[in-house]
Nucleic acid binder design. Structure first.
Length: 358
DNA sequence: AAGGCGGGGAA
DNA sequence: TTCCCAGCCTT
């Protein structure tokens, strides 16, 4: 009962061509040194929406600091966020630690190889579940991400919009049919390597493709038009004023962001939404929100920071205060050296060079 | 189904 | 500029 789309594919030959190419040409990556489930897990979380070259140094440092699930389970969340600093999507770090603690508490520290148990852990969705099951436990489960959808949209000449949830399920069904039952680990990783190095979004290197003769899009000459993907919405703009507030001891005021939402749990310099300033003056806004008395001086720099869904424009100003402590528990007075202990988003790291010793 | 959630590099 | 990357969670 083969699907129409699979009728033209010799699945055995496809698997053979793909896997033999992979075994000859696979990339040597830190998380491929062995198939330890914890290492696979950490790498797959870091690799979500993030390029391999970005992940490598973070992965090495993270594994050195937290070599086992027990080390990560016992760690302080602020330290874990500090390790994640600059990598983005910080809920990944918080969810990973939540899940690791669950593994220690409920599974005696053994990462489950049961699809239901594994998939119920925080932060492990369909893709990551498939990646861990196939790579660490050699189970023939699809692991469909953007990379895999690109490759198979071309091999099978599929024109469905890959931003649709229904399309992803369709791909999971096809990959489930095509995955090697003998070596699912190599099959899934081969697709990833193929998508990263040959079957690229623009100008794919079809001449070097090990499965070129199985590719329906190549046969039709339409590989450059696939996959079909709906355009993303544009980001909204937000204006802020950030304050580098120094007291007479030379310490600066930093503020902890809320435990949920954007950049949750990270630290920043106090920041005022510019919309609020038109109605009030700055002093009273700061008085009202932080219970602080500050003297604001000139603008020292202006920062533009782009998120996936927002663009921040931040006017950065120096300021002074006579306070030595703050009532507000979100606030802390820190020296320049102490500042390094706190996880900061990249947007606010850009302000640190404008701080001065005193 | 749609939107929130970071940051970087390639073209 | 635009794309998009080894996605998941919440609403």
């Amino acid at each position: 009962m083969k699907d129409k789309r699979l009728e033209n594919i010799d699945i055995s030959a496809f698997q053979e061509d793909l896997i033999s190419w992979y075994l000859e040409n696979k990339r040597h990556l830190p998380w491929r040194e062995n198939n330890d489930a914890y290492r696979v897990w950490v790498s797959e979380i870091m690799l979500q929406q993030t390029k391999v070259d970005t992940v490598i140094p973070y992965f090495n440092q993270f594994m050195e600091k937290y070599p086992t699930v027990y080390d990560l389970a016992e760690a302080d969340q602020q330290d874990v966020l500090k390790q994640w600093e600059g990598l983005g999507y910080y809920s990944r770090a918080r969810n990973l630690q939540t899940a690791v603690r669950e593994v220690v508490a409920s599974y005696d520290g053994e990462i489950p190889d049961d699809p239901k148990q594994l998939g119920s852990l925080k932060g492990i969705g369909p893709y990551t579940k498939g990646a861990i099951l196939s790579i660490a436990y050699n189970q023939p489960v699809p692991a469909v991400d953007g990379n895999v959808m690109r490759v198979f949209s071309r091999v099978l000449l599929m024109e469905e919009d890959i931003t649709q949830a229904s399309t992803k399920k369709l791909f999971e069904s096809y990959v489930g049919e095509m995955i090697s039952k003998e070596d699912p680990s190599s099959f899934n990783q081969a697709i990833m390597d193929l998508g990263a190095t040959i079957c690229t979004p623009k100008q794919p290197l079809c001449m070097f493709c090990p499965v070129m003769e199985h590719c329906q899009a190549y046969a039709e000459g339409v590989q450059e038009n696939l996959p079909v993907k709906k355009k993303a919405k544009k980001q909204r703009k937000e204006q802020y004023i950030a304050l580098l507030i120094q007291n007479q001891e030379g310490k600066y005021i930093i503020e902890k962001r809320p435990d949920s939402g954007l950049l949750a749990g990270l630290w920043q310099f106090p920041m005022i939404p510019e919309d609020d300033i038109v109605k009030n003056d700055w002093q009273s806004w700061i008085e009202e929100h932080y219970d602080l008395d500050v003297d604001i001086s000139e603008s020292c720099t202006s920062i533009k920071h782009v998120f996936s869904h927002i663009i921040w424009h931040v006017d950065v100003r120096k300021a002074t205060t006579n306070h030595k402590t703050a009532e507000d528990s979100r606030l802390r007075f820190v020296s320049l050296e102490e500042l390094n202990q706190y996880p900061f988003p990249v947007s606010h790291q850009k302000m640190i060079p404008f701080l001065e010793e005193k």
